[in-house]
Simulated assay, not measured.
Amino acid sequence: MRTNDKTRFAGLIGLALGGCMLSAVATAAGTDAGPTTSNKLLLTGGVSQLEGAAGGGLTPWAVIGGYGTRDEIGANAFYTRVNLPDYHVDTAGAMVGLYNRVELSFARQRFDTEKVGAALGLGEGFTFRQDVVGVKVRLFGDVVLDQGSWLPQVSVGAQYKKNDQDGVVRFVGAKRSQGTDYYISATKLFLGQSLLVDGTVRFTKANQIGILGFGGDLNNSYKPEFEASVAYLLSRHWAIGAEYRQKPNNLGIAREDDWYDAFVAWAPSKHVSLTVAYADLGNIVIKDRQRGLYASVQVGF
């Protein structure tokens, strides 16, 4: 790993440890001042995915972010780093969950092409930046309370994405540098078996989640893509799992592969969580086998 990458990961771990300290202070303050604003079980609100929604690292879940129940408001802030052999991605953002019904989120993504940028004539370290504004609404079901029902929690959402490299993405064949994904998610928690399962269908035109724009010479219409997550709760504080995310192939110049990951999530309290994963993102532009470490820290209530 390069020196600057080590520095960034050291900063990420430092932020996680700092979050643990803040968590201890907040917990102590809550003991003196009365009840906190959260009654949800640990880890049932998910973590922050790459585009800012509550869920796994790669795909949203039907859960509403934060630990607020139907009479409460919850919120999270997060930072995520994905380190690949030829690229790296940094994402930071925040979300707010309103009364376990509506989630609003924002994420800013930074995709660094490193030496590949020079090979493509863009310059070494050329960077794409993308802003993602999301909204999610719970339609019915409750992932924790509906243990006696076969019905999952179901939510619908939208993510508006705007890329800052309009000229570049159009040059490689994309039709637009901005677009909106729409999705529907169903999440079921089998509390007795400590197992959470999610299935999501996303309607999208995005190339590499929008980093290379939207639509292209091969396809310029919305296509349904399937996403799935499974998580096993080892204890109140630890979970392991895996994710899968289908991707569309819109650009003749840049084949896309589906994404996979295997993760471990640790939540010492409701105020902080740390997720580490091994992610396989396949082919990205001219480089195959883009596999590497995903790390994310989330703080909130």
Rank of each mutant, 00 (worst) to 15 (best):
T3N: 06
K6T: 13
K6N: 08
G11T: 07
G14M: 01
L15A: 15
G19S: 01
C20Q: 14
D32W: 10
T37A: 07
K40D: 12
G45H: 00
G45Q: 12
E51H: 15
G56Y: 05
L58T: 05
W61S: 11
V63F: 03
I64H: 01
G65L: 02
Y67F: 13
T69I: 07
R70I: 12
N76M: 13
F78I: 11
L84W: 06
P85G: 10
Y87H: 08
V89I: 14
T91V: 12
T91M: 13
M95K: 09
M95Y: 10
Y99H: 07
R101S: 04
E103D: 10
L104D: 05
S105Q: 05
S105H: 10
A107D: 14
T113C: 02
E114N: 06
E114K: 08
G117Y: 04
A118G: 04
G121L: 09
F128K: 00
F128W: 03
Q130N: 13
V132H: 03
G134E: 15
K136Y: 02
K136C: 00
R138F: 02
F140A: 09
V143Y: 07
L151Q: 06
V154F: 04
Q159K: 05
K162I: 09
V168F: 15
R170C: 01
F171S: 13
G173P: 01
R176L: 00
Y182K: 00
Y183W: 10
A186Y: 02
A186T: 07
A186P: 03
K188Q: 06
K188T: 11
L195Y: 11
V197S: 04
T200F: 14
T204G: 09
K205H: 01
Q208C: 02
I211W: 12
F214Q: 05
G216C: 03
S221G: 14
P224D: 12
Y232L: 08
S235Q: 07
R236S: 13
W238D: 06
Q246C: 12
K247Y: 11
P248Q: 06
N249I: 09
G252T: 12
A262P: 00
P268G: 04
K270S: 05
V276F: 14
A277R: 02
I286F: 06
D288F: 01
R291Y: 04
L293H: 01
L293Q: 03
Y294E: 11
Y294F: 10
S296I: 08
V299F: 10
